[in-house]
């Protein structure tokens, strides 16, 4: 597991957020608001992870899931890499379905 996976995810989500900003408007959509917030959340998670606080990483990512109202039953394995990847993949699918970006 590369310790930079959250930085790489933040960069990826920054691109998604930039495309989303262009593709859609309106602040009332929770998924859109959560997606725009996600790059910095994920970036911050990198620091939390590096500081040895994996539980805080999951709290923040689940917070974004709640905000996005994506309440899919994601498996909790206890491994940050797997759980974070699953959450981000779930959000990615939701954003793709809803906004086609």
């Amino acid at each position: 597991m590369g310790d930079d996976f959250l930085i790489r995810a933040a960069i990826e989500w920054a691109k998604v957020a930039a495309r989303l900003r262009v593709a859609s408007t309106g602040d009332d959509c929770p998924l859109r608001a959560a997606t725009l917030r996600l790059p910095r959340e994920v970036a911050w998670c990198h620091l939390l992870f590096a500081a040895g606080r994996p539980e805080a990483v999951m709290v923040r990512l689940r917070g974004v899931m709640r905000e996005a109202r994506q309440c899919a039953d994601l498996p909790v394995t206890g491994d940050v890499f797997s759980d974070a990847t699953a959450i981000l993949a779930c959000l990615r699918r939701a954003v793709q379905c809803r906004f086609s970006v």
Binding site: I7, P39, A43, W44, A50
Partner: peptide, 15 residues
């Protein structure tokens, strides 16, 4: 500006 991001990269450099 987004100081969240700037701190993340700054810590990476520090590492």
């Amino acid at each position: 500006r987004d100081f969240y991001w700037y701190e993340v990269l700054s810590r990476k450099m520090l590492g």
